[in-house]
């Protein structure tokens, strides 16, 4: 890891004005993400983990503090295609084939026809969906659809991948399989990944760093650097090191969360 900063947040604040008064979605968030990191954001609903991701993507705008992506403002970074965003729902267009869904960002960004085809083939290979380019989304399983949406986010060579509970709606067996594939993909492509999740084992298994957050106001309560090796078979989840980190995450969640 070069230590080059991809995301840097300094005292980030975001207050939503709602009919029930102001809601402090993010309060004094300080975090830096280095190039090549796999950072998970974990916490209960309303802790601001998704909001933070949306700020990075310039889908929300902070009301205070500083936030830079690749040394630029989030808006600028978006125009420079700094990131690919993967939503919880695969969100593939039902009227487009898988290949044409992946072409969607490429069409908007004005890539040539030949380059579009070339890139589609490349990313379909990356997510193990060769031969499915001509299928329509409804012909694919939920896990395959989500892989296609990851391929769509990878198609235009953004170095940063923002993933908002991408496997949240899938069953555990499919999820394990996708987690394994995602790690392999991350190693092969050297992308920086920010990954929002509800699942402690998922966060610990995937990440080099785990950011524990808590709600009201949304804030960071703990940042854990994982000592796990880069090579992670699924069985690593039964080792004492793994369980120790999981325990620390659970403690962090409990400390930050008042069960009222």
């Amino acid at each position: 890891m070069s230590g080059e900063k991809v995301i840097e947040a300094n005292g980030l604040d975001l207050v939503f004005q709602t009919n029930d008064g102001p809601v402090h979605a993010l309060k004094d968030v300080n975090l830096s993400v280095n190039k090549g990191d796999f950072v998970s954001f974990i916490g209960p609903s309303g802790c601001g983990k998704t909001t933070f991701l949306r700020c990075v993507a310039a889908l929300e705008h902070p009301t205070g503090g500083g936030l830079s992506v690749n040394g630029m403002s989030p808006d600028e970074a978006r125009r420079k295609r700094a990131y690919g965003y993967v939503f919880q729902a695969a969100g593939l267009y039902p009227w487009r084939t898988i290949a044409n869904n992946i072409k969607l960002p490429l069409e908007i960004m004005g890539f040539s026809r030949a380059e579009q085809d070339e890139r589609v083939n490349k990313v379909l290979q990356l997510v193990d969906l060769e031969g499915f380019g001509g299928k329509y989304p409804w012909q694919l399983s939920g896990g395959m659809q989500q892989r296609a949406s990851i391929a769509r986010a990878l198609a235009f060579d953004a170095d940063l991948l923002l993933m908002d509970e991408p496997f949240g709606a899938l069953d555990e067996i499919v999820r394990d399989h996708l987690n394994e594939q995602l790690l392999a993909l991350w190693k092969r492509t050297q992308k920086t990944i920010c990954f929002v999740t509800h699942s402690i084992p998922e966060a610990v298994y995937l990440s080099t760093r785990i950011v524990v957050m808590s709600p009201r106001p949304g804030r960071i309560t703990d940042v854990i650097d994982s000592p796990l090796p880069a090579d992670r078979p699924l069985e690593i989840r039964d080792t004492p090191e793994f369980l120790q980190i999981a325990h620390r995450v659970r403690e962090g969640l409990r400390a930050g969360h008042s069960y009222d």
């Binding site: 889908l59 978006r78 939503f87 919880q88 960004m109």
Partner: peptide, 10 residues
């Protein structure tokens, strides 16, 4: 989220 996706592509 379908609209947000397009926003992420500017």
């Amino acid at each position: 989220d379908q609209l947000d996706l397009l926003r992420t592509y500017s």
